[in-house]
Amino acid sequence: MSPRSRSIVSAALIALACLLVPFGALAAWGAYTLTDTGRYVDTLAPLAADPDVREAVAETVGDDILRQVDQHMDVRPVRGSVAPFVHDAVRSFTQTRAFRMAWDTGNRITHDAVLRALREEDGDENAARGPVTVDLAPVTAQVKRQLTEDHVPLAARIPVEHTAVSVLSAGELHHLRKGFHVLEVAGFWLPVAAVAFAAAGIALAVHRRRAVVATALGAALGGGLLALALTIGRSLTLTDLPSGIPHPAAGAVYDALTGTLRTAAWLLLGLGLTVALVTWLTRRLRPARRPRGPAAPAPAPAPSPSRARA
Results as ranks from 00 to 15, higher is better:
Ser81Arg: 07
Gly187Lys: 04
Arg292Asp: 11
Arg307Lys: 04
Asp104Pro: 00
Arg100Gln: 14
Arg145Ile: 01
Ala128Asp: 13
Gly293Ala: 13
Ala220Asp: 01
Ser92Trp: 11
Thr140Cys: 00
Pro301Thr: 10
Leu115Gln: 12
Thr60Arg: 14
Ala295Phe: 12
Gly223Met: 02
Arg54Ala: 14
Val206Arg: 15
Ala141Met: 05
Gly272Tyr: 00
Leu176Cys: 02
Pro22Phe: 10
Ser5Cys: 08
Phe93Ala: 05
Lys144Ser: 04
His207Gln: 10
Val132Asn: 10
Ala308Met: 11
Asn126Asp: 14
Ile158Asp: 04
Leu225Val: 14
Leu236Glu: 12
Phe23Asp: 05
Ala250Phe: 07
Gly179Thr: 06
Leu226Thr: 04
Arg286Ala: 15
Leu241Ser: 06
Asp74Lys: 11
Ala199Tyr: 05
Ala164Lys: 11
His151Trp: 02
Arg54Tyr: 12
Gly62Met: 07
Ser306Pro: 00
Phe93Arg: 03
Pro297Gln: 13
Pro51Ala: 13
Pro305Ser: 12
Leu281His: 06
Val165Met: 06
Ala295Leu: 13
Thr163Met: 03
Ser306Asn: 03
Thr35Val: 01
Gly259Asp: 14
Val253Gln: 04
Thr140Leu: 07
Val253Met: 10
Thr258Ala: 14
Lys144Ile: 06
Asp42Arg: 11
Gly171Asn: 15
His87Leu: 14
Thr282Leu: 09
Asp42Leu: 10
Phe188Arg: 14
Ala276Met: 04
Leu168Asn: 08
Asp70Tyr: 13
Ala98Glu: 11
Thr105Trp: 02
Ala170Phe: 01
Phe188Trp: 13
Thr231Met: 09
Ala288His: 10
Val195Pro: 02
Thr239Trp: 12
Gly270Ser: 09
Ser7Lys: 11
Glu172Ile: 01
Lys144Cys: 03
Val134Ser: 04
Asp63Gln: 10
Gln142Ile: 04
Leu238Tyr: 04
Ala137Ser: 15
Glu125Gln: 14
Ala89Lys: 01
Val78Arg: 09
Ala288Tyr: 02
Tyr254Ala: 06
Pro22Arg: 12
Arg286Thr: 15
Ala256Cys: 06
Leu16Gly: 14
Gln142Ala: 15
Ala98Tyr: 04
Thr163Ser: 06
Gly272Ser: 03
Glu184Gly: 03
Val185His: 08
Ser92Phe: 02
Val213Tyr: 00
Leu154Met: 15
Ser10His: 01
Leu230Gln: 07
Val75Gln: 00
Ala137Trp: 10
His181Ala: 15
Phe23Tyr: 10
Ala198Trp: 00
Ala199Gly: 12
Thr231Asp: 09
Gly201Glu: 11
Val21Ser: 09
Val53Cys: 09
Gln71Trp: 06
Arg39Trp: 08
Leu19Lys: 01
Phe99Val: 08
Pro191Met: 09
Gly123Thr: 13
Gly38Ser: 15
Pro131Ile: 09
Arg116Ala: 13
Ile109Asp: 15
His207Val: 08
Gly233Lys: 11
Asp150Gly: 03
Ala113Asn: 08
Gly272Gln: 00
Gly218Asn: 08
Leu268Trp: 01
Val213His: 01
Val139Gln: 05
Val78Asn: 01
Gly272Glu: 00
Ser235Lys: 12
Pro153Gln: 13
Ala128Asn: 06
Ala89Thr: 13
Glu149His: 07
Ala211Leu: 11
